[in-house]
Amino acid sequence: MTAVPRLFSILRQGPYLIASVHTALDDSQLVRFQEDLVHRIGADRARGVVIDVAALDVLDSFGSRTLRDVAEMARLRGAVTVIVGIQPDVAFAMVELGMDTGSVLTALDLEEGLVELDRCVAAPPVVPT
């Protein structure tokens, strides 16, 4: 019996969750990833999420929209999201095709993503006057 490799993992590091996508996900797998991550934000009382997509060499419009949606759902649950590891070819294709990550923060790699979370989570909230 051969073990089926996990397509993504969600690990806790202090007040943050680190979600790594290990290979391209089909639409149903992306929805499962979204559901699992949003559930874990509440269960672990996460203040921030890093989504690492470094293993992806392709990101279609559904995947891009799902990442934006996950970040918005995380925000509504009280967590900041940073997407890290977007490959150069993926970034080029996203720009050429008019896809973007909306207002979702991005960083080069996991280390910079964690620094960005620290900066955002430590900053006092802006109160409108």
Rank of each mutant, 00 (worst) to 15 (best):
V4P: 09
P5T: 08
P5M: 10
R6I: 04
R6P: 05
L7M: 11
F8W: 12
F8V: 12
F8M: 06
L11P: 02
L11K: 11
Q13Y: 12
G14C: 05
P15A: 13
L17D: 05
I18K: 02
A19Q: 05
S20Q: 12
S20K: 11
V21K: 02
H22L: 15
T23D: 14
D26E: 12
D26K: 07
D26H: 08
S28V: 13
Q29H: 06
Q29F: 03
F33N: 07
E35M: 09
D36E: 14
D36P: 04
L37I: 06
L37T: 08
V38K: 00
V38I: 15
H39V: 14
R40D: 08
R40E: 10
R40S: 09
I41L: 13
G42Y: 02
D44R: 13
D44S: 14
R45V: 02
R47K: 14
G48Y: 06
G48N: 03
V49A: 09
V50H: 03
D52Y: 05
D52L: 07
V53N: 01
V53S: 02
A55Y: 13
A55R: 14
A55P: 14
D57A: 12
D57T: 13
V58N: 03
V58P: 00
D60Y: 01
S61P: 04
S61H: 07
F62M: 11
F62I: 13
F62G: 07
L67W: 02
R68I: 11
D69T: 15
D69H: 15
V70Y: 01
A71M: 10
M73H: 06
M73R: 10
A74T: 03
A74C: 05
R75Y: 03
L76Q: 12
G78L: 09
V80W: 02
V80E: 04
V80P: 00
I83S: 05
I83D: 03
G85K: 03
I86P: 05
Q87E: 15
P88D: 13
D89F: 09
V90A: 04
V90P: 03
F92Q: 15
F92T: 15
A93S: 12
M94R: 11
V95N: 11
V95F: 09
T101M: 15
G102Y: 11
G102T: 15
L105M: 12
L105N: 07
T106R: 09
T106L: 12
T106P: 10
D109L: 10
L110S: 00
L110Q: 04
L110Y: 04
E111R: 11
E111A: 09
E111D: 14
E111S: 10
E112K: 09
E112L: 10
E112Q: 12
L114G: 05
V115S: 14
E116V: 04
D118E: 15
R119Q: 09
R119E: 06
C120Y: 03
V121R: 00
V121I: 10
A123H: 06
A123S: 13
V126R: 04
V126D: 04
V127C: 02
V127Y: 02
P128D: 11
P128M: 05
